[in-house]
Design a binder for these strands. Sequence first.
DNA 1: TGACGAAAGTTTGAAGTCAAACCAAAGGAT
DNA 2: ATCCTTTGGTTTGACTTCAAACTTTCGTCA
Lengths: 153, 153
Amino acid sequence: MPPKSAKPDESGPLYFQLFNEIGIIAQLSANLFERVLPHGLTLAQFSLLNHCVRLGDGWTPARLAAAFQVTRGTMTNTLQKLESKGFIRVDPDPHDARSKRVFLTPSGKQARDASLMALAPELAQLPAGFPPALAAEILPTLERLRIWLDTNR
Amino acid sequence: MPPKSAKPDESGPLYFQLFNEIGIIAQLSANLFERVLPHGLTLAQFSLLNHCVRLGDGWTPARLAAAFQVTRGTMTNTLQKLESKGFIRVDPDPHDARSKRVFLTPSGKQARDASLMALAPELAQLPAGFPPALAAEILPTLERLRIWLDTNR
DNA sequence: TGACGAAAGTTTGAAGTCAAACCAAAGGAT
DNA sequence: ATCCTTTGGTTTGACTTCAAACTTTCGTCA
């Protein structure tokens, strides 16, 4: 029979289960959010608006793509959608003709605020079944995993 | 002004960060997997093959959709892709003319095994930066979150 | 100065996903 | 026996996302 300290090897299934669980949570939560977001905003779109408010305007698409861990093509798409809704403005960069700069419009700011209002009741319901302490507890570990995946790709 | 023990409320940003982190991990890991999976298998497709091996054949599409937390339309799509690759067979249910039954083909079994082989080196690289103990530690909490999201939607 | 590699954005094509509308079969209630 | 509701599955349209191919511009280096 295996001794007490056998190979701690077969961790494959464990990681597998971990990624599976994470995938389902991502799916369900994105879905939950998008059902209440106003203006048909998608999670990607809202995240970008929110980013502009929290971290400031004027980023280039390339930098935004890097921040969201997404390809540039994807970012192009998201920006086009947001621009067509009038929530952002994409200006040419005066110093680099290759580049552009992304700015929030007043209407975009409003949409972001309205989104937060719409999301609040959903989030308020969460602590009952899933205490904030648990979230805080696993967050650093998740962050570590995310960073590892990010650097080792 | 707010007293020292004001509402322990503002857990909004915390949850927000949690879902954000989870979303990025899901994205990165799915991507990592799909880059090595054989036969152009997608994560959804592989997951289904794997499910058939681990939990057995003969499930109905509806039950599979429920198991994967996905709409029936989505499952229809995935099954069609897998069937066109010859990895599964979808037979009519003899007892219920509305229903169907999904079976793994020998070729599907092989594809699943080959996928595991291809995934192994990737997973083997993980423990160095992210010990299995951490995975095991946060898994129950994630499970709890997933279950909450599942029941409260 | 001229050329070439690197960087920024875009486009295209394929896949997953959802919601909503739809058809068909089953099963209970009257 | 006949509705009528529920359930199983599909289709459509819109969205995200990726990889890969492409264009334009920058910046360095010879």
